[in-house]
Design a protein around this nucleic acid. Structure first.
Lengths: 152, 152
DNA sequence: CCTATTATAGACATAAGATATCCATAATAA
DNA sequence: TTATTATGGATATCTTATGTCTATAATAGG
């Protein structure tokens, strides 16, 4: 039950891009070396982010990546859905025919597995929170909470 | 980013135990067959739950398992922590020496990685929700939402 | 005491997914 | 034309989840 490393890589990379001056394309070398991780691997993650419209990519000399929209419009949820995939966190694997009758009345009444109901509720709490936090939000928090005044 | 099947097995099993009459020990055969899953595997999960004080076990003929405390005092959180382990869902793997200065001032000022801060917040939302839901709560919801009156 | 039953623990096997590497190709700027 | 850079596919490695098997210990009942 852990987020993959890829998720962390993606988030840190997007923050890096959000800090780059607008119009400049940042290459995979710079992005990877800043975090001390393999370029080829980060490439794949960036490729996903591009296919999902979170970043734009330009091939060729002086090419690279840039955010496809402002950091204030890229939520943690957006990023995580792409990298982790969109399956739900809980799947009920109990064999229906053996499962207790209380939890297996889906077709008749719409009464689904109540364990799943709770688990889905928990997931929703987390996702809602992630939807409320953006890449830009982290940068704003950083300039505040790490400012000399705040730290003094 | 999925809960393991083991978590589902554990939750369904505990609900089964909560429904058994008090003082009766339910054996692994019954618990496993109800869900259509291998006994040896469920054994291991039950063993963990016992070591963590969620169920009691009795060996020998007519032995088996029972809840160690009322279902109203066993939260989803309790169960999931045991089965999934207690590590946090997000670990920051960015190499500190390469990471952007904004997020690597932990020792000096207590200003930790702000990505992690958001991710930990998200996790907390989910765990709080899971702490508010109990095994007994599911049974109560079942007798209500699946009752003939409600379904009519 | 003997036997059947049941949980426990460890070793082992298998499958799946995450992480990573490598290479050939396409696109682009200079 | 050349150097640079992203892309995509194939492959390798490592870890974790899942599942199986066996020997052992504990207990109830005869």
């Amino acid at each position: 039950m852990q987020f993959s490393k890829s998720t962390g890589y993606a988030l840190h990379t997007l923050i890096h891009l959000a800090q780059a001056e607008r119009g400049r394309y940042v290459g995979i070398k710079e992005l990877a070396s800043k975090q001390g991780l393999p370029e080829s691997y980060l490439s794949k993650i960036m490729s996903k982010l591009r296919q999902d419209g979170i970043v734009r990519a330009v091939t060729g000399a002086s090419g690279g990546y840039e955010l496809a929209r402002p950091g204030s419009e890229i939520t943690f949820y957006d990023v995580i859905s792409v990298v982790e995939g969109r399956q739900q966190m809980y799947e009920c694997h109990a064999a229906n025919e053996h499962q207790h009758e209380l939890f297996a009345e889906a077709d008749a009444s719409g009464c689904e597995c109540l364990v799943k109901k709770v688990m889905d509720g928990a997931e929703r709490q987390m996702l809602d929170y992630l939807k409320q936090h953006t890449i830009q939000g982290v940068l704003d928090a950083a300039s505040f909470s790490c400012s000399p005044e705040h730290r003094a």
